[in-house]
């Protein structure tokens, strides 16, 4: 009964009709990133691998900063942050570029959703290189590693929420595109990707603590590298922020979606 009435819901019916569009757009996001390069999809693996090698040389050899198993430490942070930054950026630009919505009715949320999903699939594929490095560097995995799933899911939802919000706002305020670029780089330096948070003076650490991306990366590192269970308080904090952005993103999009075609 409940299931049936849910299936006949206007929103669900609409989604069922356009799920093929979602599929096609997700495919497009993944495909177009690597089109027309010789190595094609291999760049998903090659790019983080080369990056890790370079930064490992720079940070642990030249600068002499020592972090236990630096390649894994770096990769956990870098992959997660890359997904957040590329996913939110792609979602932000998705609706702006979709000139087709001026001609045919399409549910608008499909565009940012497909961008984030597409980038998430790329991200999941790039985790293979992380798994490979874990084996090579001999990290001992425990059952606690399974808990890494939670930050992975939260990271997706947070990016989706922020992406939906940006996709709507950028249509009315083009300036947001540039501001977001600057903000992302600020966020990156406050996420402790290349360095340990221990080198940050104590009075500034709060900035990192409040950064949900840093918290997510920290949760991933704790469960993958150290086989620990992260602080449940971290989960609540990050989940709270995620829900806030999801609700905000969805509300903004549905409130203003009828006006989009006048501004695209």
């Amino acid at each position: 009964m409940v299931f049936e009435s849910l299936m006949n819901n206007r929103f669900v019916l609409n989604f069922m009709k356009y799920k093929y569009l979602l599929y096609e757009l997700v495919k497009k996001t993944v495909k177009l990133d690597y089109r027309r390069s010789f190595l094609g999809i291999f760049w998903i693996f090659l790019n983080p691998l080369l990056y890790t090698i370079v930064l490992t040389i720079v940070f642990s050899t030249f600068l002499g900063r020592y972090i236990d198993n630096y390649p894994i430490y770096l990769l956990c942070g870098r992959l997660a942050f890359d997904f957040f930054s590329s996913g939110s950026k792609a979602a932000m630009n998705s609706l702006k570029k979709a000139s087709i919505i001026k001609r045919v009715y399409v549910p608008k949320y499909i565009y940012p959703l497909s961008s984030v999903l597409g980038k998430y699939i790329t991200f999941l594929m790039s985790l293979i290189i992380l798994a490979l490095l874990i084996i090579v560097t001999g990290v001992v995995l425990t059952w606690q590693t399974v808990w890494a799933i939670i930050p992975f899911i939260i990271l997706f939802l947070l990016t989706l929420g922020v992406g939906l919000m940006l996709a709507t706002v950028v249509i009315f305020f083009r300036d947001v595109k540039h501001l977001w670029g600057v903000f992302t780089s600020l966020l990156m330096w406050c996420s402790a990707i290349f360095y340990s948070i221990d080198i940050i003076p104590a009075q500034f650490r709060a900035v990192f603590e409040f950064n949900p991306i840093f918290q997510i990366i920290d949760m991933i590192r704790k469960s993958v590298m150290y086989g620990q269970f992260y602080d449940p308080f971290q989960v609540f904090y990050v989940l709270g922020i995620t829900i806030f952005f999801l609700v905000l993103g969805i509300c903004l999009l549905f409130k203003y979606q009828d006006k989009f075609i006048l501004y695209i």
Partner: peptide, 25 residues
Amino acid sequence: STGFDKSYTGRENIFLRGATLGFST
């Protein structure tokens, strides 16, 4: 003539446009 994805091939665009109109693959 507008609304095609320019870096996508003709074949891919056919499926994309079809899906935009609500057709299954």
